[in-house]
Computed example of a mutant assay.
Amino acid sequence: MTWDPAVLRKHNTTSHFRLLSQLRGELRDNPLVRPKEGERIGEVNRSKSLVRAVENKIASMARSRRSGGPEPRR
């Protein structure tokens, strides 16, 4: 049994426009910032929550190494 092409087209089109709408909303809430001279794009556009999450991850990895925790995966 195969899918009806009309159903597939409708589903793919709907999903595509939902993703575009979601992306548009995210960009509206958190617009991209152009880097100034000497800055990298990633540094400028990182959200505060992402920066905190990365810092917390690094800190927890350092604590586990000091306490003799499990070896990190390679």
Rank of each mutant, 00 (worst) to 15 (best):
M1C: 07
M1D: 08
M1G: 11
M1V: 13
M1R: 11
T2W: 00
T2Y: 02
T2F: 00
W3V: 14
W3H: 10
W3Q: 13
D4F: 08
D4P: 04
P5T: 03
P5Y: 03
P5N: 09
P5V: 05
A6R: 10
L8C: 11
L8N: 11
R9P: 01
R9D: 05
R9Q: 11
K10V: 03
K10G: 03
K10Q: 08
K10T: 07
N12I: 15
T14S: 04
S15N: 10
S15R: 12
S15A: 12
H16W: 04
F17A: 02
L19A: 10
L19Y: 06
L20C: 10
L20T: 09
S21P: 00
Q22G: 09
Q22M: 10
Q22T: 14
L23K: 01
L23W: 01
L23Y: 01
L23F: 01
R24N: 05
R24D: 04
G25K: 02
E26R: 15
L27P: 00
L27Y: 03
L27A: 01
L27C: 03
L27D: 00
L27W: 01
R28E: 08
R28F: 02
D29T: 10
N30H: 13
P31I: 00
P31F: 00
L32A: 02
L32Y: 02
L32I: 03
L32P: 00
V33K: 11
V33W: 04
V33T: 14
V33C: 06
R34C: 06
R34W: 11
R34M: 09
R34A: 14
P35G: 05
P35D: 03
P35R: 09
P35C: 07
K36F: 07
K36Q: 11
K36N: 08
K36V: 03
E37I: 09
G38N: 07
G38S: 10
E39Y: 02
R40W: 08
R40A: 12
I41N: 07
G42P: 01
G42A: 13
E43S: 14
V44I: 05
V44M: 02
N45E: 00
N45K: 00
N45T: 00
R46L: 07
R46T: 12
R46H: 06
R46E: 12
S47N: 07
S47Y: 04
K48E: 12
K48I: 07
S49W: 04
S49R: 06
R52N: 08
R52P: 00
R52H: 08
A53F: 01
A53C: 04
A53I: 02
A53V: 00
V54N: 13
V54K: 14
E55I: 11
K57I: 09
K57C: 13
I58C: 10
A59W: 12
A59I: 12
S60W: 13
S60C: 12
M61I: 11
M61N: 14
A62D: 09
A62L: 13
S64V: 08
R66H: 06
R66K: 15
S67A: 13
S67P: 01
S67F: 03
G69F: 07
G69I: 04
P70Q: 06
P70T: 04
P70F: 05
E71K: 15
E71A: 15
E71G: 09
E71F: 14
P72Q: 06
P72G: 05
R73F: 11
R73Y: 11
R73H: 11
R74C: 08
